[in-house]
Design a protein around this nucleic acid. Structure first.
Lengths: 135, 135
DNA sequence: TCCTAAATAATAATAGTTACTAAAATTATT
DNA sequence: AATAATTTTAGTAACTATTATTATTTAGGA
């Protein structure tokens, strides 16, 4: 897991992930990076996104529909997916709650539970404003 | 969403889902049903699994790796995926907790949160027994 | 500068899933 | 029970997301 060599493509991908909150898919990352490196290939994007996820510099979010999404924010937090627009938002709960969810789960499982992911579903502020009857 | 016509294939799929706790993938369902209906097609399995999920007679579980899994248990509950063997287990928390997770999330999100899915990660009893050093 | 390992672009291959279509099965109508 | 209308099916092709392959390029150390 060590022999990592610098690459401008990977640096650009990480840079992008750290400065966006839109939780892009690999394809979205590809389209964006291509503006700076017009002949980067999609495979390179996938490889580097997975590399960043492996080294803990990014998080891979599996959503039920569409491809996986990536997040440059690596502290423990959750995600809300808006049923209207499909966008993914960050949501933070304090660590006390996160830990209590794990231990609660452990009490109901004959085995060990060490982590979890939550995907919340709802409607984002933007969509509520456009569509007030949803409130 | 109404004009549903009976089919033995769909009935067999539902029957199978309701009597297994292994959270099979579409392919696993296919292999199983094929023992009774040797020329059922994979497309039929997918179509019916999605149909059952749409009508609320089954649940589709997205896992980060491998295909989606299906669950004939439709009451509110969660899942634990064993990092060792990859199997998916049911885990129930009482409704009080489930609701409190939603409302807690709602307080930290500028919008509404109405539901969520949790995927827990851990090690199942079976794998712990085989590999006691993991405890 | 030269060497070696790693990274790249381009492309092929794969996995999981959906779409299409003619034939078969189910349900409603006579 | 026969017929008609509509859904479902099997078989297959197509599609989307992702990973693997490979020859070439690049990074970084000797």
């Amino acid at each position: 897991m060590a022999n990592l060599k610098y690459s401008r493509q990977r640096a650009a991908i990480k840079e992008y992930l750290c400065h966006t909150t839109e939780h892009p898919t690999a394809d979205t990352v590809y389209l964006h990076i291509r503006e700076t490196y017009p002949n980067i290939s999609l495979g390179t994007v996938y490889r580097n996104l997975n590399l960043l996820a492996d080294t803990g510099e990014a998080i891979k979010i599996s959503t039920p529909d569409g491809g996986d999404r990536f997040d440059g924010r690596t502290d423990l937090h959750y995600h809300v997916i808006c049923r209207e627009c499909g966008r993914v938002f960050d949501l933070e709960l304090d660590e006390r709650h996160i830990r209590s969810i794990n231990s609660l789960a452990g009490q109901h499982f004959e085995g060990t539970v060490d982590s979890h992911t939550i995907l919340f579903y709802g409607t984002c502020k933007n969509c509520l404003d456009k569509n007030p009857k949803m409130r």
